[in-house]
Design a protein around this nucleic acid. Sequence first.
DNA 1: GTTTAGGGTTCG
Length: 804
Amino acid sequence: MPVCVFSEGAGPGAQVPAHLTRIPIALITTSTDCSNKTVKGKVVKKCPLVSLASDNVILKTVIQEEDSPPNSSSQSPSINVILFGALAKDFNQTVNQGDVVVASGFTVGKSPTVHKDKLHPCNLLLSGDDACIYVTLLPPPLLDPRSPPAAKRSSALSAEVSRATKAPKYTYVRLGDLKPGTVVNVYGVVVFFKQPFKSRGTDFCSSLKITDQSNQKIGCTIFCQLEDHPKIFQIGDIIRFHRVKTQSFNNSITLVTSFGFSVLVFDGAEGGSMEPRTSSRSFHIDQEDRQTVEELRSWAAKQALVPPVPTIPLSAVSPKAYFDLTCQLLAKAPIDTTCTLLRVWDGTRCPHTLLNVIVERNVTEGPTSFSQERESLIANILVYDNHTEFARQLKPGDFLRIYNLRAIPGSSKVPGLTSSQSEEVDHLAFHLHGGTAYGRGIRVLPENSPAVQELKRVMEAFPEDDKDELNDSEMLDIWSTPPEFLEAGAVECSTERSCGHDTQLVTLSEVKRSDPGRVHHVRVQLRSYEPRRLHQALKLYCSKCTSMQDVPDDELVAGLFSEAFKDSGPCSPPPWAVSGRVNAPGDSPGSPKRTLSVHMSTQLMSEDKSKELIFLMGSTLEETRRLAAGYRNIVPVMSSAGHLALLDLLAPFLFRGRKTYYGCKRCSEAAVREPSCAEGVEMIDEKIIAQALGVQLLQFVLLMNLQLQDATDTLDVFLWRDAEAFFGVLAEDVAANQEAQNIIHQTMDSLCPAEGSTGGHPWMDLCLTAYRAEDDEEQNQTYYQICHSTVTKPFSAQSNANPA
DNA sequence: GTTTAGGGTTCG
């Protein structure tokens, strides 16, 4: 029973078994006795499921303790968890980021990524029949900034029960069949809704109207605490009420919340997410619920209930119109007691001149000024009366939907401070008038909502606003040295070209205007680069299928080793091998020594080259790394169906000192074979071994994206094929040693210092090639790559690094 | 197992 789901509704049943006791993450060590222990935490990271050649799968996740027990530290510790096989598959399907899980039946290993991720020094390994994950499905992030902290909900687990047990059956009444004076459960499609507002009583009140296949439109009034109100984002959303009472009002039936009321809201789009929006600490949805939602979705799609364009981007607003706007808040400022200014953008440019509002700097929350580029995209929204109270809770960066916003053309008086613009100028002002008519109001959208995802995609087209352009002295820096007027050599450059091209210096804007397939010489500064973390720039490249992949995470590789170790049954060595055992390198001198089985080529033994190459079985990743110091070549192997086999090719197939070598899964036909070491070959290297094993060797490469700048433009270029020459280091060395990594860090730091403006960055002489990607005909995009260029003065920062 | 509200544009 690998993954056990807890949710609402059932009687006493499968809880986390009582004989299991929970241990705090902080107290886990490799010597912890894990039997009958559990670890509980919220899933803060869920990596993709990775398939292994051996018909197995592996998945890495990170869980964080939310409510550290009293005897643990006050921080919230996180730990890596590696899942194998069916458990990994189930977890992948069932569990989402944000869910709270309880793990049992795990073993504790040393986390090989502790230095990189700074998480717990151990990891939890879950595989086999004993391993189990209990999960409490949690709703997506709550929308209301005043929603209760997660800790409040985290104790729910013990009160909840497994989906496997029988849940009480809910019956849902069609809206056409409602009778007054009853308490019912209903489903409906939202056709109108209003944001909650404070009632004169103890609760917040919101009203909405829903419909279903019976075509009745039923008004609903909700009274409850703010966070429990239905999280409706737009007309068309689907709502499920439990325990609402029917009332007769004005000759029609209305629904009102009654005791024990609960509500879920689903996206109304056909094929949309089935994850309900709710603050409910426990709820239950089953296959029937999903079917009801899908039926309502497809019915509604044919009814024209949903406005064709639910929200309008700034680029499409028309004067005088009311519209809904999905946007990001950049800054806000109170104007007076009845009015607040919200500065927002949505990544589109409004064709009308927008109202310019001037406010004092010291009352603004968020940046007081933006680059000219960004400023031209910003809409100033004035929100009045009841909405100012809600606006107070908003934070710059929040994603918002503003309902029933009005675009007012012509002159507008702004209370308090006057606009700098002439009242004669034709411009648009955005007002969110007081009151709640037509659902007028503001809602914070969660990051994971489709609307926000789409918004972010549009916004990504704009560079980060680092305000370089704002600062006059910085501008001067850039403009005072326009490269097109420079004599070659007049400016000190940090790089030099080694190509033989006879080409004049050109500006970046000229480069952009040129056709692809050409070579350009430019003099530029480095504005920014990606990735900022070196290990993300390191890739594995297959020269055969030209695919590029990330270097597998240590945690995953360590998992592969421990799986291989577990699976290793009896195994007959190949006829060409001699078998023996070596001591596993242990770190605690007192602990009993484990021995590992090794296989060596008889021929190499006879040539007295026994240390040249060993096939090592049953070692951990860490042990393999340690043993690699004493043997020239180590090939980790496992037992598969009684024979020696290589590990999954996601793991390195070869260890040579501090270097590791990987094979291409697609292009290799790997098997354990004896390297035919031709006579006269002095050294067995990775190529010989790869060839013998049928492994297509992957090559370490560096891949970075650099944003260049000169006085005329900016340009994104790749540094890849000539990256090693550029830095003067081998990617293979970067993967293996700190010194090579330091060279790259120092080079990038000197070309693009963290402090100061781009205008102060050193100039670079570069050779660029412009090309179209072969498989990218549709996009027709031109790419640029730095070639034949080398950094000459990488360490200018070191010159003053010697204080007396 | 109580109360609240019961949609329908705009002062700015």
